[in-house]
Amino acid sequence: MSTASGEKAVALSARSLVYSYGAAPAVKGVSLEVARGEILSITGASGSGKSTLLLCLAGVLAPDAGEVRLGDRIISAESESERSRLRRSQVGVVFQFGQLVPELTALENVALPLLLGGARRSAAETAARTWLERFEVGGLADARPPGMSGGQSQRVAIARAMVTEPEVVLADEPTGALDSLSGELVMNQLVRVVREAGTTVVLVTHDARVSAYGDREIHLRDGELDPHPADLLDAGVS
């Protein structure tokens, strides 16, 4: 079990999580805890199961065994429609690319989760504008994704993930499609905003420089958590 640091309340946890694609197990009994306000990095080579783990944590995939807990709710036991509602309100998800609706403006994209949750258009657009400004892309409110740079559309996508002020943001290679300077600027901004908001973040990445933005890192190998080297010492395995 990888435990959250300190005595802080646990925002998100997984217990003995298993997920297989057909006969091929991708996540093999992973347990972890993320403290409220913590940024946890999950690293691992391609195929190590880190993206599948994130999709289970996000409630996109229902695990074959084990449970995912968000606060007091066991989300892995909930129905698809309940999990989907949860993703629109309490969990923000950011992927590497391809997540904005190309026909909608940046403002409409960011307002979308609020509108789907039943908010009034004017309130949703006011909130969307605030979040675009927080990520310094307020000037792009009326632009559509095809006209934006990679860094700009990723900021808009992160603003959309944050607009419902979720307790947890799950990000899968959020800067994977960006050049290193744009990626760094996006990460700096993301970290600044989530620290201010006290949001809990799980960050999946293969890049150590992105992982270093986290407070703590866990490493996946073949669907299993690599024990921390300090634990190897404790257990006398060397």
């Binding site: 700096n188 150590a208 270093a212 407070d215 190897l232 010492l233 060397s238």
Partner: peptide
């Protein structure tokens, strides 16, 4: 061999700790 493996993993963790320190410096307003 096993000890060399463990050494490398400890070294990896030490490097990552250092990287987190520098990243904090970088994000400090």
């Amino acid at each position: 061999e096993q000890e060399a493996h463990t050494y490398l993993r400890r070294q990896r963790a030490a490097h990552l700790d250092r990287m987190r320190d520098y990243t904090r410096t970088k994000t400090e307003p």
